[in-house]
Amino acid sequence: MDKTLLQDKITKLKKEKNAIILAHYYQRDEVQEIADFIGDSLALSIEASKTNASMIVFCGVKFMAETAKILSPDKKVLLPVLDAGCPLADMATAENVMKMKDEIGDASIVSYVNTNVDVKMISDICCTSANAINVVKSLESKKILFVPDKHLGAYVKRNVSDKEIYLFDGYCAVHDSFNKQDIENLLAKYPNAKVCVHPESPLEVIELADFVGSTAGIIKYCKESSVKEFIIATENGIVFELKKQLPNKVFYTLGTKAICVNMKKTTLKNVADALQNDIYEINLTDEQIEKARKPIERMIAIKRQ
């Protein structure tokens, strides 16, 4: 079925099922085109919770759909591709996080929103890449176990001097692959470009940045800047929204290195199939929802950068 027919089918099914489609900035262009909301993972889940839709189709990865279910327990949440997972989230389990906490001693667990539900359930508070520094600063505890992204954790550690911050050894394979040379090579070609870096990147990359922040933060920075050229050190999918909002500006990426395979698994056909057949539903127990919701709600109250 061609693109136009699939889009028409999705529009029809969406109306029949009273569904909304959420797409992360890293999704394929064609999927972002048919989404009702495009954004970063937490913002999407919050927006969906405010709607009167009875079904959410989350075009992203599993932990994102789980978060949507946690914040909208009465809605049916579908993940169009069953094996669209996040290797970073999967690195942390409730068992290995608690083992590390036991070794450290009395510490508050701050878990990045990029975690599965079992880790959220044992967390004191969650954070996003936009509010991680403010979340850690807000805690009375002097000992922090930051889970699971070591690069985001190192960035927080560099900006919070009065806490003892222990880092879980997790990483996003895409951002972890970025290095100083990648940025310097692009700057040699485009010396007038501003460098925008996601904090899941290594510190050597962050140190070359003009701006460090979340996907939404990067878009905001590019919109507000008078500069016309930008080097974007995060997953390539964000460029679709950047070009849509800023057609007169130019964006340079780190090429094939900056592609998340899991984020690119979802196609228009997958979205249509999910809507037609109600697959694949995210099912969480009442206990999982209740326990995981508390650290998320604490996080939502924290100011974003």
Rank of each mutant, 00 (worst) to 15 (best):
T128V: 07
I109H: 08
V97F: 07
N134F: 02
M100A: 06
V117A: 07
S123P: 14
D106T: 13
D124L: 09
M100Q: 10
E103R: 15
D106M: 13
A107C: 15
V77A: 08
L78Q: 01
P87D: 08
M100I: 15
L78C: 05
K99Q: 13
V81D: 00
K76I: 11
K76C: 03
T115N: 15
D118Y: 08
A94F: 05
K76V: 06
D106S: 15
S129Y: 04
T115A: 15
K101W: 07
A89I: 10
S108I: 12
D124P: 09
K99I: 07
P73R: 11
V110G: 10
V117R: 11
A94S: 15
T115I: 11
D124V: 09
M100D: 01
T128N: 11
M121A: 14
V113D: 00
M91R: 01
V136D: 03
N134L: 04
L79R: 00
L82V: 00
N114V: 11
N116H: 06
D124T: 06
K76Y: 05
L82R: 04
N114Q: 12
C86S: 10
D83H: 07
V77I: 11
P80H: 12
C86L: 08
K76N: 05
V77D: 03
A94Q: 12
K99N: 08
N131C: 09
C127H: 04
S72C: 06
D74H: 14
A94K: 15
V97C: 06
V113I: 12
A94G: 09
A107M: 15
S111V: 11
D118H: 14
M91F: 01
N116P: 00
A89F: 06
D106F: 09
I133T: 07
E95G: 02
A84G: 05
I122Y: 09
C127S: 14
G85N: 12
K101M: 08
D102G: 10
V136C: 05
